[in-house]
């Protein structure tokens, strides 16, 4: 009951506000075109009829929430998963490159952090480059990666996954540098009194201490991976994936399709972030954390 009052009601209130604002926006943006249509057809609808018409256009400037919802429902649950119109199929394609890019990015981020924490030269030289790498707009870089890799014969999943890697290694590297440096001086002194080697200090102290930092940055990284995968799908000739769906929607002014692809992307992102969060909770529980 407390959960209902403290969590669900506030979320639903905000959601309702967004939906109302969305309907008002849909009316305002679709009205001029509808007025134009009615004038040409010589129709004079009542206010109620006019409002309904702005919400039921086949290619609206801004589709109304119920149009997006029914399109999303239809393309998610009523189509065969193998169909090219199924959002599940497209989400699956995007998910595959998101997850491979995320795995690679996390691994790369951890390796970079280990290097920075243990090698003074890397500590002094690597960070500026890592930060610079993230200031380059991925939208400019993605087509170059796709084209260059296609020129050497690499197409399909790998180029998209690499764009995800490029976006997701960064939060992990930054978070893990902080995490691996998080043990207190007292704990480091303790390992020193045992005459522990650097490797022993790493495995028994630094790495376990960094776990909460790892999961916090993996949450950011997995969302960035999804963005990378979608962007990677834009220049691939619109074959498959949420990005391709967005692109073809914009070619043919299928605004409803574009919006339901966006919703699909949001659902996938929410699922991924939640999954990483749950995995983090489970690991921390297994490591004896005090239950909150």
């Amino acid at each position: 009951m407390d959960r209902f009052r403290d969590k669900i009601i506030p979320v639903l209130t905000i959601l309702m506000g967004i939906v109302i604002a969305w309907y008002i926006g849909a009316y305002a943006l679709n009205a001029p075109f509808q007025r134009d249509l009615d004038r040409r057809a010589g129709e004079t609808p009542t206010t109620y009829e006019f409002v309904v018409k702005t919400m039921t256009q086949p290619k609206p400037t801004l589709p109304a929430p119920h149009q997006v919802a029914s399109n999303f429902f239809e393309n998610t649950f009523l189509r065969k998963v193998s169909s090219a119109r199924s959002l599940v199929y497209h989400a699956g394609v995007t998910l595959a490159s998101t997850l491979s890019g995320f795995a690679l990015g996390t691994l790369l981020g951890i390796l970079i952090a280990v290097g920075i924490v243990h090698v003074t030269t890397l500590d002094r030289s690597l960070m500026p480059w890592i930060i610079t790498s993230q200031t380059i707009p991925i939208l400019a870089l993605a087509p170059m990666i796709i084209v260059v890799l296609a020129a050497v014969g690499i197409t399909g999943l790998i180029p998209k996954a690499l764009i995800s890697t490029y976006l997701s290694f960064f939060p992990v590297a930054v978070g893990m540098v902080k995490g691996l440096r998080s043990p207190e001086t007292m704990h480091l002194d303790l390992m020193h009194t045992y005459n522990a080697s650097k490797a022993e200090t790493f495995w028994k102290l630094r790495l376990p201490a960094s776990v909460p930092f790892l999961f916090a940055s993996m949450k950011v990284a997995v969302a960035a991976s999804l963005v990378g995968a979608i962007i990677g799908e834009l220049p691939t000739g619109a074959v498959a994936g949420i990005g391709a769906k967005l692109l073809s929607g914009s070619y043919y002014s299928q605004t409803i399709d574009m919006f339901s692809a966006l919703v699909a992307g949001a659902v996938v992102a929410a699922l991924l972030v939640t999954l990483v969060g749950v995995a983090g909770k489970l690991v921390e529980r297994a490591m004896g954390a005090r239950p909150a």
Binding site: E184, M186, H187, D189, L190, Y194, K204, M287
Partner: peptide, 15 residues
């Protein structure tokens, strides 16, 4: 490893 050191705080590893 000639000595054992006990710090001001217990400094146990929480995990």
């Amino acid at each position: 490893r000639a000595y054992g050191y006990v710090f001001q705080a217990a400094a146990l590893l929480p995990w």
